[in-house]
Design a protein around this nucleic acid. Sequence first.
DNA 1: CTGAAAGCGCTTACAG
DNA 2: CTGAAAGCGCTTACAG
Lengths: 333, 333
Amino acid sequence: MATRKEVALEAGVSTAAVSYFINNNGYLSQEKREKIAAAIKKLNYRPNLLAKSLKTNDSKQLVFICNEIRNPFHAEVAYGASSEAYKMGYMTMFCNVVDDEDYILKMCSYMVSGVFISTTIIRTATINKIAQMNIPVVILADRQRQGLDPSVTQITIDYDKAMGALVDHVLEQGKRRIAYVASSGMQDSARYDGKTKALFAHCQEKGIALNPNWFVEHATHTQAAYDAVQAKIFTQSDLPDAFICTNDATALGVIRAITDNGLRVPEDVIVTGFDNTVYGQMSTPRLTTIDLGTLNISRETVGLLLEKCQGKDVNGGVIDPLFIPRESTQVPQ
Amino acid sequence: MATRKEVALEAGVSTAAVSYFINNNGYLSQEKREKIAAAIKKLNYRPNLLAKSLKTNDSKQLVFICNEIRNPFHAEVAYGASSEAYKMGYMTMFCNVVDDEDYILKMCSYMVSGVFISTTIIRTATINKIAQMNIPVVILADRQRQGLDPSVTQITIDYDKAMGALVDHVLEQGKRRIAYVASSGMQDSARYDGKTKALFAHCQEKGIALNPNWFVEHATHTQAAYDAVQAKIFTQSDLPDAFICTNDATALGVIRAITDNGLRVPEDVIVTGFDNTVYGQMSTPRLTTIDLGTLNISRETVGLLLEKCQGKDVNGGVIDPLFIPRESTQVPQ
DNA sequence: CTGAAAGCGCTTACAG
DNA sequence: CTGAAAGCGCTTACAG
């Protein structure tokens, strides 16, 4: 690869002039412009963005952290985030890893412009260390975190409303034997997420006692959910009549497990999802779920992040969930 | 953020010594080591990886290009690729954009270590420009490309075998009225992909004339496939009795469209997918499909890429597909 | 209006 | 064994 120096030599100008040309600032005669343009073309020159980043102290790289890109919700967030970043001329580094603080901090050591966190399963201490590197951070998550560096912008989801709608709907269907399928562990308070908390609160309010034998943990994905439900629920003689699942991906695995045990959804057992993914819209039966406007919120969150990068003061927000009843919970009349 | 200079000052050593300490090379007395370690801790110092990259001419960043991260196949490849990169200490930049050459080349201008392309829909000229920047490139795609820079390593899929198995199976079910649902456009030769080509060849061999009215194009994803099939197929009076779909995600949308038109899968119409995603394993009916060992091949491809980065000579390969018959094509006896 | 020079935060060959 | 110095490819304040 040719460097700036070679271009300057070829064009018979200073290296500064080449810089001015490329960044379109400073004063440059028409004649020089043409010479430089010709030299760039001839040498097939491309500016080294890494060197530029070092000088300007900004790499125009965003880092995006999520814990499971194979979950269609996260894939949608990643899609929205990276396409918005693209539109604004930013690159996005992708991080699948949530528990290796050293790796995450390394990733942030490339003078990145900002960090977008889309997962609950990351330690507050890790987030704070990123913030202390003076990197703008936004987090899209399921609950307001305590003890977070005040510079971090939080965008949370109104889980009380969402889980309230789900629980009320389940009760309206005459079901009271509720199983809960979570992606996190129930006992581990660090991962005790907003959904779980809201579910428990609403059931208590409605006088429903949840059976701890029907809590399924660590159902991080479709296959894991299928396996966990088979192992933990269908080995019991006493069975639930409703499954509230942490997301659509999980719910699809649960429905398969139910069907494989000779029961029908929704006639025998009802199932709810979360996220309103396309797979839940297209499945048989279609999933009752919660819509968050995923694509839009991921885009808006990147927008917020980029405003922070420009030094603007930015407010977090709360996402209003929309309840969508479909076939997986309602027996046709 | 503290810099190397401040650490050196604090520890009372040269900046070179700090460098030796961090990279664990050169000679350093035990006493100095301890002083440096203390200074690093005290100042909460983190090396600027961008500056290091500029000096060493290698950023330890890989770029991963795919066209649709929301497709579960690509999500799986992204997952495998980035987790393998992580294991080897590399970062991965993620690129969703396939047709903006300028953006792609910019992304490669950060002294990236290598590029992993997982899409058919990218111009050969663009790939060659990356290769001409002396960046190692691997491409995981559906056909051997002509005119590619010889430095590029190609990993292709044996589509003849895969489509042959699918077509034979469909014919064995007594179906001869085959519709084809493609993610690309049929007429655009640049996007006329390996699957399509192989399908046509096999049908011709078997004496099956494909009806051009039953070619559905641009079904890039589940929703797009649903919409396209509704608009193009179910507006006709003459209907196919089998749908061969470019991938599982597409097939799920097609099944929904068929069902919404009052027909049953597989009793009235049969449907095949491709990729063996978890959604096809868990769907009702379960999808007949092709397995490629996606997770493994994405990991192996990254392994190959990293070997190339170390200057090794590396051979591409051909992936052997496995046919998996399931419920979506077989009426239970 | 223009270009020489300093400097971004690192690494490493080399002189002592 | 150790540190001063040059240099990676850029940008930009500043002297002329």
